[in-house]
Every structure is written in C-alpha cells, then in structure tokens.
C-alpha cells in the first residue's frame, strides 16, 4: 500500500521543515567566534562556524547562543569562556595552549626536531666525503677492459 501523493508530500515537507530561522546563517561576527569553537555533533571535525549540516543539533543552537550573547555586547573571549564552562575544554576547536593541550602542537614540532636530529646523526655516521673504495689505479686498470666491455652493452 502506497500512501497517497498528498500525504507523501506532507511527509516530505515535514522532513524538510526542520527548525530553521535566519539566525542559523553565519554572519561574519558569528563566524569570528564560531571558528574558535568545535562542533560537537560527533559527526564532523568542523567548527561551529563551518559545520554545514543543516539539521546539526549542536552548531545551530550554538550559533544562536553566540548571536544572542553578541547582542548583549559580550566580548568574544567571554563567549568562548562561556562555552568552555558549559562543555569543558572540548568546546574549543583547537587545543588550548595550556596544561595538557600544549602537547597537541608541541609534540609534532618535537617530532620534526627529533627527525632532523636523526638525519643529523645519520649524516654524521655515514658521511664520508670522497669515500671511494681504496683501489689503486693499477687495480682499476686491471678491470678496465671488463668494465668498458660490459658497459658498452648497456646503452
């Protein structure tokens, strides 16, 4: 049994008409603050400002809250602090530069440093300028014919 066309359209419209109001759109002011906040919907790695999921249950209310607080002339940092207070540090899009969060950016930098160190060690250990096998010219001449003969076959 297929529902009649009208009821199908009713379902369609009900599905499409999810809470939407002009406040979901990202104004430059909202974007400025929203870029600092992580979208915690669990399905994306975007920020509150860049989450493009229309029915996102996190970023939409978050944007509305940002807009509301901006109307009350709250400073950016205070808005961010308010989010952190409510959700914990995970509300921030990037790890904070304090406590354990420092490690987020520090570790890759340290790793690159270590890698450079390793390359340095490698170069120190294996670098031997002009290190060619100690063959006298006479020994080389002994094999010269063979070298020339085999090499001429190659090209």
């Amino acid at each position: 049994m297929r529902p009649s066309r009208n009821s199908v359209l009713f379902v369609l419209l009900a599905g499409l008409c999810l809470a939407q109001s002009s406040s979901q759109y990202v104004t430059p002011e909202i974007r400025r603050v929203g870029d600092k906040l992580a979208c915690l919907c669990g399905a994306c790695k975007n920020t509150v400002a860049t989450c493009q999921m229309l029915e996102c249950h996190y970023s939409l209310p978050a944007r509305q809250r940002i807009a509301k607080m901006q109307k009350e002339a709250t400073a950016d940092t205070a808005i961010v602090a308010e989010f952190v207070k409510r959700e914990g540090k995970k509300a921030l899009a990037e790890p904070p530069n304090e406590g354990f969060g420092v490690l987020a950016l520090a570790t890759p930098v340290i790793a690159v440093g270590l890698g450079l160190g390793l390359i340095g060690l490698f170069i120190r250990r294996y670098r031997k300028p002009n290190a060619v096998p100690a063959m006298t010219d006479e020994e080389v001449r002994k094999y010269q014919d063979q070298i020339d003969k085999e090499f001429s076959k190659l090209d």
């Binding site: 002009n130 060619v132 096998p133 063959m135 020994e139 080389v140 002994k142 094999y143 010269q144 063979q146 070298i147």
Partner: peptide, 12 residues
C-alpha cells in the same frame, strides 16, 4: 672515476 673504482672493487 669514483664509480669505476667502486666497480673495480666489486669485480675484485
């Protein structure tokens, strides 16, 4: 010259 020396070494 370096390469030829290396080659001679391998042949030796």
């Amino acid at each position: 010259v370096d390469l030829q020396k290396e080659l001679a070494k391998v042949l030796a």
